[in-house]
């Protein structure tokens, strides 16, 4: 464990708490659209469920197991909240990204490019590829509405920072322990790249107190 990865994981936790806070806030405004993509959240739940199939078989540390359990539980809880409890605040007309294509693409790629052709390895690889593109429905929704609430931008910022710090962590690990993981690196680089436009607007507008609006 290094500081980059620790802070990255903490930012990931922070993003989930921001999301839960945002949902709590949305509930108090009756009938208001949450502007949180259900598809992205459902994809994240799929990512964690397919990645942590080694939860009971492969013990790394108490930290590792606790985080895995938290990510699985919180992602399922968020999907549950959006699907049942706050259904009225979720507007499917804005959430129109064709998620089935990225799921299909990630599954096909996982079958072709993987470290070992076993059920667990293919599922793990699928989760890596799927995570790389899971944010697309959310970003697509943002593009469609052209603006975002501050709290939503903080959520995306926390997620983007988490991904960015993982890149730094991999460079650090490569030099300190000759750690290599090409599948994770390439998928991770793609994933972080998706946040570039968002980061630009976040830094030039939101942090200066302006509303998040697309040009």
């Amino acid at each position: 464990m290094n500081l980059f990865r620790l802070v990255a994981d903490l930012m990931h936790l922070v993003s989930i708490f921001i999301l839960l806070l945002k949902m709590q806030k949305t509930r108090s405004v009756a009938g208001r659209c949450s502007r949180i993509s259900f598809k992205t959240q459902a994809l994240y739940a799929t990512v964690f469920l397919t990645r942590y199939t080694d939860l009971f078989a492969n013990f790394q540390s108490l930290y590792n197991t606790t985080m895995k359990v938290f990510f699985i539980a919180s992602s399922l809880y968020i999907v549950f909240l959006m699907k049942f409890k706050f259904k009225a605040t979720n507007d499917p007309r804005l959430d129109t990204f064709k998620a089935q294509y990225v799921v299909g693409g990630a599954a096909a790629l996982a079958l072709i490019v993987n470290y070992a052709f076993t059920v667990q390895e293919v599922l793990w690889t699928f989760s890596i590829y799927l995570e790389a593109v899971a944010i697309l429905p959310q970003l697509f929704m943002l593009t469609k509405t052209g603006e975002a609430e501050v709290i939503t931008t903080h959520y995306l910022f926390a997620l983007g920072t988490y991904r960015g710090l993982y890149l730094v962590n991999w460079i650090y690990r490569y030099w300190t322990e000759y750690y290599v993981d090409w599948i994770v690196w390439i998928a991770g680089a793609v994933q972080t790249g998706l946040y570039c436009d968002f980061f630009y607007i976040y830094f030039t507008k939101v942090l200066k107190g302006a509303k998040f609006e697309l040009p």
Binding site: D9, N58, Q60, M67, F71, N169, Y179, V184
Partner: peptide
Amino acid sequence: GTAEVKKDEL
């Protein structure tokens, strides 16, 4: 040999 993937990351 090839570097082993540790899978210790989340």
